[in-house]
Amino acid sequence: MPPTDESLQPVPGAPALTFENVVKKFGDLTVLNDLNFEVERGQRVTLIGPSGSGKTTILRLVMTLESLTGGYIHVDGVPLTHVERGGKRVARRHKDVAQLTRRIGMVFQQFNLFPNMTVIENIIEAPVHVLGKSKEEARTRGKELLEQVGLGDKADQHPSRLSGGQQQRVAIARALAMDPEILLLDEVTSALDPELVGDVLQVLRDLAENTDITMLIVTHEMQFAQDVSDRVLMFDSGHIIEDAQPDVMFSNPTHERTKEFLRAVL
């Protein structure tokens, strides 16, 4: 077996996600500078902080939608996009990265369902063509997931026929159909009308309660963050300025910047 395949195996006991000296620049603008933190397996971590503080960028880096400028991100102890070889930082082969990202799912602010496919086609696309499941198997599981998000009757609709909240629940089902170990939630309720937010959050609360999926969450819904998180990280200008359990973070923050931020949003 070639050594690269072996090195993709999860390291026992390693955190689900490790950020090691992560640097991200967009041109001259440094968004993240030497960021270090870990997310343990099964942990629910919410990132809060003012817009522009780099929270979404962190999720996008994990999903490989942005490229790292420096440092490493490890998934289950395995370096995701770059490895160190002979003291040098080298990019991994695309194929290996794709293999590792299968463990990660993402739900987007704008849902990003495929409009040319029906709801069930959206859900079974990757299980069939990426994981190689049979259509029947994927369809059965897809239907179950649709029931779970309360949309059992919408399987054969096109996404354009659904409300924003329904589309977002389909997007959650689509991500879950890949059985991710890690789920990234990027402001999943920010594009929704206020009355549609509740259903989406309820689905996620259920998910947090009934599964052991590791979650990394960016949200402006502070009540939701308090309910589902094990840990809240307060970001400012690309740095973690406070790292605490939700009850401590929301009731008794230590950092002045956090107090200011929470006063503005709560």
Binding site: M63, T64, L65, G105, F108, N112, L113, F114, H129
Partner: peptide
């Protein structure tokens, strides 16, 4: 976002073109 969703689902380049991009 369509490309990003395909990446998030670990879809291959070829499959992304065929199933998502070309039909649209």
């Amino acid at each position: 976002g369509q490309w990003e969703a395909a990446t998030a689902l670990s879809m291959s380049k070829g499959r992304t073109w065929r199933a998502v991009i070309i039909p649209q």
